[in-house]
């Protein structure tokens, strides 16, 4: 769908340069040429916005949450998996209350070498070994549910 606001602004800029005497058909042709030239860039920017999200939570980030009984090595094991999958940790928050371990990691999966499903399989396996539950869910889900 054409962006009418943008077309209007381009038209004004063209008239600004050529003066109001400019031939109407030439102006129209020029405006459409310019619009078509920039349209793909606009579309991909919009696409980027919708698929990756900005404030809306990001599709390329995972929230990894880990719950269970505390013992040494949980943080190391989880971050090891993330490192091997080439996911960087953006944020991490870990607490132990009355022996109960809770950790939340925000991980960037842009450069991940494997699918989310494969990553989750590894988390499941490691979780069983460690005796904790590890969940991984896309960040935009949390944004959708908890932010207006």
């Amino acid at each position: 769908m054409a962006n009418e606001e943008l077309i209007y602004r381009i038209t004004r800029a063209v008239y600004g340069r050529l003066g109001t005497q400019a031939d109407e058909q030439t102006v129209e042709a020029l405006v459409m040429d310019v619009y078509r030239a920039v349209e793909p860039a606009l579309a991909s920017a919009a696409d980027e916005g919708s698929s990756k999200g900005g404030k809306e939570g990001r599709a390329d980030r995972l929230i990894v949450s880990v719950f269970g009984s505390d013992h040494p090595g949980i943080v190391a094991a989880v971050s090891q998996i993330l490192a091997e999958a080439r996911c960087s940790i953006i944020d991490i928050n870990q607490t132990v209350v009355q022996g109960k371990f809770a950790m939340v990691i925000v991980a960037d999966i842009t450069r991940a070498g494997e699918s989310v499903a494969a990553l989750k399989d590894r988390f499941r396996g490691e979780g069983d070994r460690l005796g904790v539950r590890i969940y991984a869910q896309r960040e935009d889900l949390f944004n959708a549910m908890h932010r207006i």
Partner: peptide, 15 residues
């Protein structure tokens, strides 16, 4: 962190 632990826990519990 953009979300509180309670929010994250609620989503995990629901799903």
């Amino acid at each position: 962190m953009d979300y509180t632990q309670a929010e994250i826990l609620q989503t995990v519990r629901m799903t």
